[in-house]
Nucleic acid binder design. Structure first.
Lengths: 149, 149
DNA sequence: TATTGTTATACTCTATAACTATA
DNA sequence: TATAGTTATAGAGTATAACAATA
């Protein structure tokens, strides 16, 4: 038990403890894992749910706008939409006003999946928010928004 | 310009605006992208830097402990360490006290890379912290830690 | 038996580049 | 020319399963 320097002392993360980005990455990872567990039955990822939700919220939205809002480039947006389309949750239509754009719509199956996903999101968010007061949640969201806006 | 519902109104993220996990994911993405830019010359990723830093901080640390602290399973830890070893930044040694474990050490090249990485981290962290007061930084770290601990 | 490392495999996310169609 | 979509490709992270060596 007296090898090198490992195994014994476990105060925290050493030098990394003071790095904001480090804690942000670990927190994101923890939330990602819980999200994956919560959505294991539905088999949807964070990105897929975000796209499903946003298309449900704004029927006819173009891929380029989806990517802009979710901070994805065109190619990444393609892979997400492709997967949702393959599962029968979404369909592409030529935009009537701009032939370059695709107007995205949910299929009935997509609408049903969105309802289920919304319930899962509520469970997931409750788990995440349970460790904070409402005031803290508001402050956390505000600070996170200052980072990504 | 009167197609469907897209293109015009851009208040925020719609229904997703109230979801903590959504903002956490976007914030993580923004920090990840800035990190990648800052480390483009060095060519190191977040995970690689974390491992480099932690091995520098605790010479002889075992892979299993690295994974435990950085929330990675054994296979994922392997890929990170493999990459750092291939680049000549790290070497594996059999632990003298426990034959199952590998004791990880930085090579001289790894030490030099760590010095450069530390300078990049300072630039990156300054960029991240610039939008917060010291009190807010402390609060943010404390809340993020409550999520991942 | 349990733990640690290892290998193989697969999926997702991300990004770049090049190409097509439309504005 | 610029924009939007598409396709191909590649690297990184994550995870599972199975195996070997050691405790």
């Amino acid at each position: 038990m007296t090898e090198d320097t490992s195994d014994t002392d476990k105060p925290g993360f050493g030098l990394l403890d003071g790095i904001v980005g480090f804690h942000l990455r670990l927190a994101h990872g923890a939330v990602y894992r819980h999200f994956t567990e919560t959505f294991s039955e539905l088999g949807l990822t964070q990105k897929q749910v975000s796209v499903l939700w946003m298309v449900g919220d704004k029927p006819g939205v173009a891929q380029i706008e989806l990517g802009s809002r979710l901070r994805m480039d065109r190619a990444t947006t393609m892979t997400i939409v492709n997967r949702l389309q393959e599962r029968g949750y979404m369909r592409r239509e030529r935009s009537s006003s701009d032939g370059r754009k695709q107007a995205l719509h949910l299929t009935p199956a997509g609408e049903a999946a969105l309802v289920e996903a919304t319930q899962c999101i509520e469970l997931h968010e409750a788990w995440l928010k349970s460790r904070f007061t409402p005031q803290e949640v508001e402050k956390l969201v505000e600070m996170l928004a200052r980072i990504h806006e």
